[in-house]
Computed example of a mutant assay.
Amino acid sequence: MLEEKLRQAIIDELTRQAADRPQALKIQGADNAQGSEELTVNGKVDLGALVMVIAGSVAGGP
Rank of each mutant, 00 (worst) to 15 (best):
M1Y: 00
L2N: 04
E3D: 07
E3F: 06
E4D: 07
K5D: 10
L6E: 11
L6Q: 11
L6H: 13
L6A: 08
L6S: 06
R7V: 01
R7Q: 13
A9I: 07
I10E: 01
I11N: 05
I11Y: 00
I11P: 06
I11W: 00
D12N: 09
D12H: 03
D12E: 15
E13I: 07
E13S: 12
E13T: 13
L14T: 09
L14G: 06
L14Q: 09
T15H: 03
T15A: 12
T15C: 06
R16G: 04
R16K: 13
R16C: 07
Q17P: 04
Q17L: 05
A18R: 06
A18I: 04
A18H: 01
A19N: 10
D20H: 09
R21S: 13
R21F: 10
P22D: 02
P22W: 01
P22Y: 02
P22N: 01
P22I: 01
P22F: 01
Q23L: 11
A24P: 03
A24L: 13
A24R: 11
L25P: 06
K26P: 02
K26S: 14
K26R: 14
K26F: 04
I27K: 01
Q28I: 04
Q28C: 04
Q28K: 07
G29P: 08
G29M: 03
A30D: 01
A30S: 14
A30Y: 00
N32R: 01
N32K: 02
N32A: 04
N32L: 03
N32C: 00
A33N: 04
G35V: 00
G35I: 00
S36F: 00
S36N: 12
S36K: 09
S36D: 12
E37F: 03
E37K: 10
E37P: 06
E37H: 11
L39D: 11
L39I: 13
L39K: 09
T40P: 00
V41W: 03
V41A: 08
V41N: 10
N42L: 14
N42T: 15
G43H: 04
G43W: 05
G43F: 10
G43D: 13
G43P: 12
K44W: 13
K44Q: 14
K44N: 09
V45S: 09
D46Y: 05
D46G: 07
D46N: 15
L47T: 15
L47N: 04
L47Q: 08
G48F: 10
G48W: 06
A49R: 15
A49N: 14
L50Q: 06
M52G: 09
M52H: 05
M52F: 02
M52R: 15
M52D: 15
M52W: 00
I54W: 07
I54E: 04
I54F: 12
I54N: 08
G56H: 06
S57H: 01
S57Q: 06
S57W: 02
V58Y: 11
V58G: 05
V58L: 15
V58F: 02
V58N: 05
A59Q: 11
A59G: 07
G60M: 12
G60D: 02
G60R: 15
P62L: 13
P62K: 14
P62Q: 11
